[in-house]
């Protein structure tokens, strides 16, 4: 079971004179799936960089427990390593034999059997993202950060990837933070959706979605939640 939790109190961040995030409060409990949506330029990625420890906040308190790994939008794999090599990066502490076993187990889970020796540039966009998710899940990561992980993919591949993410998380539950501009993706996947305002961003709306996963994109709970989020953002009356 995942043990990663996050607690943020009064967090603000600015780049020089430009205030990006203002007074953010957020508690994420272990195993929870939280999605953060907002208009582009609202500071979603900055928030993720702060959560993953890549940036230090200008002010406020940020507490994390457990290890954190980020899945990037695209090109986060090391192109000089094969699928196996990239997955093995996630398992630095294992001996060679257990590493091989764990890698081949993950290759199977992400459905890339037969592509172990392939380099990322020979894979499709969807396959590359599956490897990235697999790499991030290897070796007992506690918190999984997803930075618009499917935004470079076409719609149908995106739908498929959401299903696969649910399946992987069912086998290996994790605390998940998903940052996305795809509201449907957020409502189909998350236990809780947070909406950020324009810059300087704060959380202006919060919605819990108590529908068990995996959910259909057209399930009533998902459609209702999508409508509620769009309304909160001012796109629907």
């Amino acid at each position: 079971m995942s043990t990663g939790s996050i607690s943020i109190k009064g967090l603000s961040h600015s780049y020089g004179a430009t205030a990006v995030l203002k007074d953010i409060h957020l508690d994420v409990s272990p195993g929870e799936f939280v999605a953060i949506v907002g208009p582009s330029g609202s500071g979603k990625s900055t928030l993720l960089s702060l959560l993953s420890g890549y940036l230090k906040p200008t002010s406020g308190v940020l507490e994390r427990t457990g290890t954190t790994r980020t899945v990037h939008q695209a090109d986060g794999l090391y192109p000089w390593l094969t699928v196996e090599g990239n997955l093995a990066l996630g398992l630095p502490k294992l001996d060679a034999a257990s590493k091989r076993r764990a890698v081949s187990d993950m290759v199977g889970r992400i459905g890339l059997t037969g592509f172990e020796k392939a380099f990322p540039h020979a894979l499709s966009g969807g396959m590359r993202q599956r490897v990235e998710i697999g790499r991030a899940l290897c070796g007992g990561t506690d918190v999984l950060m997803l930075d618009e992980p499917f935004s470079a993919l076409d719609y149908l591949t995106r739908l498929k990837m959401r299903g696969e993410l649910c399946r992987l998380l069912e086998d290996q539950p994790r605390t998940v933070i998903l940052v996305t501009h795809d509201i449907e993706e957020a409502t189909q996947l998350a236990d809780r959706v947070l909406v950020l305002s324009e810059r300087p961003a704060s959380i202006v709306y919060e919605l819990k979605i108590d529908v068990p996963r995996p959910r259909d994109v057209t399930a009533p709970g998902v459609v209702d939640a999508t409508k509620a989020v769009l309304k909160a953002m001012g796109y629907e009356p």
Binding site: Y54, R69, T70, H72, G76, Y78, L81, L89, G90, A136
Partner: peptide, 24 residues
């Protein structure tokens, strides 16, 4: 992004040089 991945996967110091920067 390669450096962010390096940080997530604990590639620091000499490993960052030999396993990230050099192959890149």
């Amino acid at each position: 992004v390669y450096f962010r991945v390096a940080q997530d996967y604990d590639l620091k110091g000499i490993h960052r040089l030999t396993r990230v920067i050099f192959p890149a």
